[in-house]
């Protein structure tokens, strides 16, 4: 896989609907430098609804599936034996292909003594590329009824870019789809909410990120002072708490109308600029934040500053993140 020049931040969560897309879009809109958003929630991609990108290119994602030349085939059955996915089976003594089960491994062609198997591409989804204002935009989209989710995610992730920052909007969960999106990122931002479901699923997502060796930080969405279970969890687990976004019905209403919260809710932009500052510090492994495009840094609200002071008191996982990072960005 080709390396991107910049840093990749994957926005993920165990539980669905915690605000991944809101955070990913907001990060893209407040990034200190050139930025690209890659929507890897390919079963339900939503970032486009808030960024309204102009799509310039659509690339199919396909799987090579076998086609049997009946004239050449002698029904020896070796292909069916080689297939571990039940995609090629003998029916009344003759091989039959079930394309939706085929993973495109090519094992059947290897064993066909008569060269009677030819592969044809079956499209399972697309990767679209475009721009939304200053934000470069990539999204994967799997066709409804298909199951090759990680394949489409990897295709979207493999798109290279010269942007300084790549923000990946990951699918929910903590299994192969989430890991396909998060793997290789420089940092995972795990978005959660302070509820029993939120905490339970966050813990699973943290395990997955750790298994991938991706350092993570946490954003609490719909934060309320009555429920500090996530804050406690961060302390217990020694994980960086990046930000707490207050519970606000206005945010839900803006979201419901497809408005990005950064432009429609007062104070939000400053919050995300502050979040970027914490992120950059974590990625660089020091508290120094020199950012070329950071024109609005001077305008961080008191609220955001207070919050950062508060967060500063919570011992962070920056040191462990620092150790596993290859080097600092310049």
């Amino acid at each position: 896989m080709k390396r991107n020049e910049g840093m990749t931040i994957a926005v993920a969560s165990g539980k669905g609907g915690t605000g991944k897309t809101t955070v990913a879009v907001s990060l893209a809109l407040t990034a200190p430098g050139t930025v690209r958003l890659v929507d890897c929630d390919v079963e339900e991609p939503n970032a486009h609804l808030f960024l309204n990108p102009v799509i310039q290119r659509t690339n199919p994602v396909s799987i090579p599936v076998p086609e049997i030349n009946r004239e050449e085939c002698r029904s020896c059955g070796r292909c069916a034996e080689a297939c571990r996915f039940g995609a090629l089976v003998l029916l009344r003594g003759r091989p039959h292909v079930f394309p939706s089960l085929c993973k495109g491994c090519g094992a059947c062609s290897d064993v066909c003594a008569r060269g009677a198997i030819k592969e044809t591409d079956r499209t399972v989804g697309v990767v679209e590329e475009g721009t939304a204002g200053a934000v470069a935009f990539v999204q994967g989209r799997i066709n409804v009824g298909e199951t090759a989710t990680p394949r489409v995610i990897r295709a979207a992730r493999e798109m290279t870019s010269s942007a300084r920052w790549t923000i990946v909007d990951s699918p929910p969960g903590a299994s192969c789809a989430m890991t396909a999106a998060v793997r290789g990122a420089d940092m995972a931002v795990l978005v959660t909410e302070p509820t029993p479901f939120g905490l339970h699923d966050l813990d699973i997502a943290v395990d997955s990120a750790r298994k991938l060796g991706v350092p993570c930080g946490i954003v609490v969405n719909r934060h309320t002072p009555e429920d500090l279970r996530i804050r406690d969890y961060c302390v217990r687990q020694n994980i960086l708490l990046l930000a707490e976004i207050p519970d606000d019905r206005r945010a839900a209403e803006a979201y419901s109308r497809g408005k990005n919260v950064v432009d429609s809710l007062p104070g939000m932009k400053e919050r995300f600029v502050a979040l970027w500052k914490s992120l950059s510090a974590a990625l660089k492994g020091n508290g120094d934040f020199s950012c070329e495009g950071g024109n609005s840094l001077a305008q961080i609200s008191d609220d955001a500053l207070n919050e950062r002071t508060l967060l500063g008191k919570i011992r962070t996982g920056v040191s462990s993140a620092r150790n596993s990072l290859p080097g600092s960005v310049t």
Binding site: E43, E44, N46, L49, I142, T149, S256, R257
Partner: peptide, 26 residues
């Protein structure tokens, strides 16, 4: 959530699937 392999597994054989949806663009 989603429409991938586990959603397909969940709905196969159902007498009724009830969708719970939010009134948002997404």
């Amino acid at each position: 959530p989603g429409v991938g392999c586990s959603a397909i597994a969940a709905l196969s054989g159902a007498s009724l699937v009830l969708f719970v949806a939010e009134p948002t663009v997404s």
